[in-house]
Amino acid sequence: MSLVKLRNITKEYQLGKTVVHALRGVDLAIDAGEIVAIMGPSGSGKSTLMHIIGCLDMPSVGEVEIENMPTDSLRERQLATIRGRKIGFVFQTFNLVASLTAQGNVALPMIFQKIKRTQRTQRAAELLEKIGLGDRKNHHPNELSGGERQRVSIARAMANDPDIILADEPTGNLDSESGATVMRTLRRLSDEEGKTVIVVTHNPEVAAYADRVITLRDGKIIKEERRD
């Protein structure tokens, strides 16, 4: 059964005086446990698609269902809760909070879900341990390398044990070796914990880790290939 269902998603937005047609009718279903890579050139709409899947943005037309729940009628608070509990985000620029330590960053999403402090600290430490950064938990982001920062942000995405990990160009700012480590980590999350991972990338090496590659161009899916 599909975890994420998109039906006829169209997204237009105003940029200055021009109307940008970011997505023009996208249909997509993503199953639990899959790794899906969304590829395409700049401006093809891949980031917009990811924002819509991640409930950060609403489509102009079309329906989004997450675990069979339509999201179009949800309120701000409910959307925030879905983002907090069901989705983990990994960004190209890491987007860690500079004033918090690695552990504090990993614990941040748990604060908004009202998880107790001791529990948060413990889970954050465990998650960092799991991605091999147990000894860096008290470091601030500016004391970590790019690869380490990205792994911290993966740990943060895992904080509330979501079903879906959305990664927007997760290796875009990393050297190839760190990039490979990050991708192996995401692969492992899918294989061992059954997480659904959606990766936006234009790097074929990254796409090679995916079960399915979807190619977008001008806001439409033009190619879909399954790998084995």
Binding site: L56, E76, R77, A80, R83, G84, F91, T93, V97, F112
Partner: peptide, 14 residues
Amino acid sequence: TREIGVMKAVGAQN
């Protein structure tokens, strides 16, 4: 601004 975006992405309500 970015930090606020991140907090919202990880589940912060308004």
